[in-house]
């Protein structure tokens, strides 16, 4: 147990002293996972809206694909993105392999079905009369959609949390397409793996704590936005 306490002490020291390498790794993690989540949100939310609110040919098949995608193994995503971006692969000419962009692409593929799937389920739970009520009071099509999104705000923000949580903690895909290059593509998860393998447990523990703090901070912000105006426990019988 001694090494664990030493690890914790070292972690605190690294964090307090804002160790340059640790800060650089943490910043890249925020950038890659943040960008992936935002892109997944931009693509996945409209897809979820489309699947939830519009009827079209192939909708159920697409729903099934999205739901399957929610459980996509990151390592499989990493494998296929790596094959595509590999120097001799179909998109090799783009020279993206072992770059943060490649890591973002892989993480978007992981997060997109989560955002789309949770959004779809969230919007399907909204009373269909909300849109009608909005239109009845003069809302345009987009204003009515906004009213529906507002009603699904809690689960939609949960979708963002789930997406960010899945990509920030993911290691297989970023390792395969990013290569864990120091200073270039090393993020918290890949760094933890590396430091553990090398026996530098203090560093690994420091990075792990940082990853937890980062994840918690992000979710704290989103939870505050999510719970704003809900007035606490919604069920009177449990107050």
């Amino acid at each position: 147990m001694d090494f664990l306490f030493r690890g914790l002490a070292k972690a605190i020291e690294l964090l307090v002293s804002l160790d340059r390498e640790v800060v650089q790794i943490a910043w890249l993690t925020v950038c890659v996972s943040g960008a992936s989540t935002l892109i997944a949100l931009a693509l996945g939310m409209p897809l979820g809206v489309l699947l939830a609110l519009r009827a079209f040919f192939g909708r159920r098949l697409l729903m099934a694909l999205v739901n399957t995608g929610m459980g996509l193994p990151p390592v499989v995503v990493g494998l296929f993105v790596a094959i595509l971006l590999w120097r001799s692969g179909p998109l090799g000419g783009l020279n993206l392999i072992y770059t943060p962009t490649a890591m973002v692409i892989a993480q978007v593929i992981i997060a997109l079905p989560i955002v789309a799937g949770v959004s779809m389920a969230a919007l399907q739970q909204v009373d269909p009369m909300v849109a009608l009520q909005a239109r009845a009071l003069g809302a345009s099509r987009w204003q009515a959609l906004w009213a529906v999104l507002q009603e699904a705000r809690l689960p939609l923000l949960a979708a963002i949390m789930a997406a960010f949580g899945s990509v920030v903690s993911e290691v297989g895909a970023v390792l395969m397409v990013g290569g864990n290059l120091k200073g270039d593509t090393r993020v918290l998860t890949t760094a933890i793996v590396l430091e553990t393998r090398m026996g530098r447990l203090e560093m690994a523990i420091a990075l792990a704590i940082l990853l937890l703090v980062l994840s918690f901070a992000m979710n704290l912000v989103l939870t505050r936005i999510q719970q704003k105006g809900t007035g606490g426990a919604p069920f009177r019988c449990w107050r």
């Binding site: 009373d127 009369m129 909300v130 009608l132 009520q133 909005a134 239109r135 009845a136 009071l137 003069g138 345009s140 009213a147 507002q150 009603e151 705000r153 105006g229 809900t230």
Partner: peptide, 20 residues
């Protein structure tokens, strides 16, 4: 239709309120 609809108001059978 939107401009004309905005001159009207429709009350539904069961009031649907927006969060807030």
């Amino acid at each position: 239709s939107l401009a004309i609809r905005r001159r009207f108001a429709l009350l539904l059978q069961k009031p649907v309120f927006f969060r807030g």
